[in-house]
């Protein structure tokens, strides 16, 4: 800088401008530096690919997900065979291919996880917006309803519901959604109450903007960050929720495979004692998938947190310190 003197024009141009990134750009910019989140993201992409490729696996292996291979899949004593060249992850107690079933289970888990999280987010945001913006009796009714949902013991409720209406995919989805939106609703309500007092809302009112316009154009866009963060965190809990319901036989109906059901199969009659692959492969998939979503959720929250910049700095400084001391003794 000190050697080649810049021209006047360059000198005027020189002051760097802080560019405002859109929140998606910003999110990506920060996530890129977070190794744990990146790994989680790659893993999730692989699980999605795995789920999408389920029919392909079925064709390649020639094993339908509900086909029972009593000759090749079971030993002469009737026990499942372990991982081998035909059954890459082994077979289950009926001689079905674990790999194919795991892939179909991934479909169910991801579908329920993402779908339930999205629906729950929509409900939560709507309830939170209405309660927060309008206040008064609207707030009283919606907030008490939220409290009510949070107070219901979900397992008893699920048992009762399934024994009356029977288990199904829709029922499973309904239960997951019903018990997931309340937390988001409360968070959004609190945020909206704060946003409502901001001057730009007042400014819109003074221009004569209608209430729906203020809610949609002024308040909602400013909720992007909590919505992204809470929705990513809803996905893993929805996946676990679905797995627990299926494990208890209240969720996905056989023969459609789901991870919870497969775990339940492994635990029935202590099958995992003779066929540990039934437990390990499924359990590991469930664990890693939810872990990956959780890590990603944390990463997203940190990336969107305005204070995260400082933590990033602290990290930078730690890295610089040793070199600095070496240079200056």
């Amino acid at each position: 800088m000190s050697e080649a003197a810049p021209t006047v024009a360059e000198a005027i141009q020189a002051p760097a401008q802080v560019v405002q990134r859109s929140s998606w750009q910003h999110l990506w910019y920060r996530l890129r530096r977070d190794k744990a989140s990146l790994t989680a993201l790659v893993f999730i992409a692989l699980v999605i690919a795995f789920a999408v490729c389920a029919p392909l696996l079925e064709t390649v292996t020639g094993h339908l997900y509900d086909a029972q291979f009593r000759d090749t899949g079971l030993t002469p004593q009737g026990l499942p065979v372990g991982p081998n060249s035909e059954f890459l992850l082994g077979a289950d107690y009926l001689g079905r291919d674990m790999l194919v079933r795991l892939a179909y289970g991934a479909q169910v888990s991801l579908l329920v996880g993402v779908l339930a999280a999205l629906i729950a987010a929509c409900i939560g945001v709507t309830v939170g917006l209405l309660a927060g913006y309008f206040g008064g009796w609207v707030d009283a009714v919606l907030s008490r309803f939220t409290d009510f949902v949070m107070a219901i013991p979900f397992l008893l409720f699920a048992l009762a519901l399934v024994s009356v209406y029977g288990a199904s995919f829709q029922m499973c989805l309904f239960m997951v959604v019903f018990f997931s939106w309340a937390v988001l609703g409360r968070v959004i309500r609190a945020q909206v109450r704060a946003l409502k007092e901001r001057e730009f809302v007042e400014a819109s009112r003074s221009l004569g903007a209608s209430t729906p316009s203020i809610v949609v154009k002024d308040v909602l866009p400013n909720l992007t960050e909590p919505i992204i963060v809470y929705t990513t965190q809803l996905i893993p809990s929805a996946i676990v929720f679905e797995a627990s319901l299926s494990f208890l036989g209240l969720g996905i109906v056989p023969p459609m495979p789901s991870w919870g059901q497969m775990l339940s199969d492994a635990s029935q009659n202590s099958m995992y004692m003779v066929a540990p692959w039934m437990l390990v492969s499924t359990g590991l998939m469930l664990l890693l998938t939810t872990l990956a979503f959780n890590i990603l959720g944390d990463g997203v929250r940190d990336a969107l947190d305005p204070k995260a910049g400082r933590r990033l700095l602290a990290g930078l400084r730690r890295k610089q310190k040793p070199g600095k001391e070496a240079a200056h003794g």
């Binding site: 901001r198 001057e199 730009f200 007042e202 400014a203 819109s204 154009k217 002024d218 866009p221 400013n222 992007t224």
Partner: peptide, 10 residues
């Protein structure tokens, strides 16, 4: 407040 009176998202 020139910061608070403009919606940051528009």
């Amino acid at each position: 407040d020139p910061y608070g009176s403009l919606n940051p998202r528009r």
